[in-house]
């Protein structure tokens, strides 16, 4: 990454990254891209998330799914590892728990490709700093 020399430059970089994110996720037509995040802290990896990440990456590549997959840290749901978060274009993020190979397949085929609900969603019950005025 280029060196950031001033606060103004940083603000510009922040805007650019945000625009990229918004462009990717806010459109609900073919242009939009689904974001898949696999929780990969030490504990998630111990629960098998490395394999889930591989499996889902392969599915995305081989089946030509319009999605980007990335690794993230602990989502906090130890009781339901491995956990995967999916954000479809124009929709709220959804977390799936206890993901195995079959469920990974189901998430890709039903939820990401068709937008159909898939069981096993963990209800998000936290606020972020931006939601506290």
């Amino acid at each position: 990454m280029k060196r950031i020399n001033t606060v103004k430059e940083l603000e510009k970089v922040i805007r650019n990254y945000r625009d990229d994110l918004v462009r990717n996720t806010s459109q609900d037509d073919q242009e939009g891209i689904a974001l898949i995040k696999v929780a990969m802290a030490t504990c998630s990896i111990a629960a098998g998330s490395e394999k889930i990440y591989q499996t889902m990456s392969d599915f995305v590549k081989k089946r030509g799914v319009h999605a980007e997959i990335s690794k993230t840290g602990c989502m906090g749901y130890c009781y339901a590892e491995p956990t995967v978060e999916v954000t479809l274009p124009g929709r709220e993020p959804v977390v799936f728990g206890n993901v195995d190979e079959n469920r990974a397949d189901e998430i890709i085929e039903s939820y990401i490709k068709m937008g159909d609900p898939v069981p096993g969603i963990i209800k998000r019950d936290y606020s972020t700093p931006d939601q506290v005025l």
Binding site: K37, G73, C74, G76, E85, Y126, S127, T128, P129
Partner: peptide, 13 residues
Amino acid sequence: NRQLRIALRNCGS
């Protein structure tokens, strides 16, 4: 929401 994530705001996201 029952939780508020400040220290964990980016963790898992």
